[in-house]
Design a protein around this nucleic acid. Sequence first.
DNA 1: TAGTTACAGACTTATATAAGACTACTTGAC
DNA 2: GTCAAGTAGTCTTATATAAGTCTGTAACTA
Lengths: 242, 242
Amino acid sequence: MITAGKGAMPLYIQIRELLIAKISKGDWLPGDSIPSEMNLSQELGVSQGTVRKAITELVEYNVLRRKQGRGTFVSNHDSQRALFHFFHIVDAKGHRVMPDSKVLRCHRRHASHGEALKLKLKDRADIIRIERVRNLSSSPTMIETITLPGHLFKDWDELDSGNLPNMLYELYEKQFGITIHSAEEQLRAVAATKHDASLLNLQAGTPLLEIERVALTLNKSPVELRISRCNTKKHHYENTIL
Amino acid sequence: MITAGKGAMPLYIQIRELLIAKISKGDWLPGDSIPSEMNLSQELGVSQGTVRKAITELVEYNVLRRKQGRGTFVSNHDSQRALFHFFHIVDAKGHRVMPDSKVLRCHRRHASHGEALKLKLKDRADIIRIERVRNLSSSPTMIETITLPGHLFKDWDELDSGNLPNMLYELYEKQFGITIHSAEEQLRAVAATKHDASLLNLQAGTPLLEIERVALTLNKSPVELRISRCNTKKHHYENTIL
DNA sequence: TAGTTACAGACTTATATAAGACTACTTGAC
DNA sequence: GTCAAGTAGTCTTATATAAGTCTGTAACTA
């Protein structure tokens, strides 16, 4: 409940947490508009400015999106957002390229110890494994190995695995109600294996950029482990430090 | 001048730009406190809340730093900030390690075409070139090649080049009045040259992570080009996407 | 009549101000 | 030295007004 007074959390923080809870719980779905600042303020017994401050912080975290004159909306994963926010590989000129994807395999397995650790699962838990090659500027450039906790993607097997969409986060959201909100990436340089080499048309031993990403929901629980191995001859990973 | 009324920019944006100008111009130096919100509001003829909103945005950009009960300060580069904000190499456990550095060479040259382009200089402009090896967890892990525009670092040669400080951004700020505020990085996987290999105790051809960074001031003008080649056997580059 | 434009009103977020609460440092009494 | 009050800073909340967006209806045109 919202409480005011000495020693209590500031109102706007209580309200921010309340809004997060509503979204995590699924009361408000991605793409939906939330009640107006005025409505919320009356409902919660605080002023519009206080609700506004709470909302502002969530807009900064990319949880909400405001449109003046229209309302405030829960962020969703259109492919634009996925491309601009989560995809950091660009071409030599620094332009973002929409990748396309060819799925090589898609099957269920047991998690290895390392996978279980990174996804916070029990050892040998049920997982889904996807392997695909991605073309950038129409040449094969990345090999992705994606690991998903089986229990979060129950009806996965009903999908046409040969024809998965290009941007998976949109799929997670629409089909499984799971919204990826943030991610932690580790980057390393590795040597291409023979397998890598044949898929990417290069020689074994060629240096590849390996990106290991754990994608998280709003409440920080891991949902996807993705290992990408990229040929950085004509593309590179771009990061801006602000 | 601050102007209100129809068609004018919002007050808080005008004030934000004014504050940025003051800082860029050097009226307020890194580490200094700026006038209080109340003083500024009186001086500028707006309310405290409006000044506050302008300041808030600059705090989010890491330009200013607030301390409740004390004041608002221009951000400066203590080595902590450099380490946490600009240094993304961590050990296998994800812990930040303070690197140490050994300078190999430090001399003046003419800029190559590529360097001039990235630093927005004229071809063959005067530059300073620093090469150093950095140890992480007491083993040689990175080779850095740093390029600085000569005209911005006039008295550089008076420094003891064999004994440069570990965190250069602090030096730029204190000795030359240049504050690094943001940076753009490009990451690639490359093969170690013989030279790399001998410095890092590994075999030629070993994959290295190459980080090419252009560091910028508050008004986006490039100040440093830094190419780091890292052995990612025991360390990796960490990036969080929010 | 059917279709289109103009405009008013309702509802939304955005901006600006003011007042009091909280926090850290300083000063002075003891 | 220690403690308490004072001072000067930021932080929180509330209120009022501006500006943007959509919808329905009245007026106008073909």
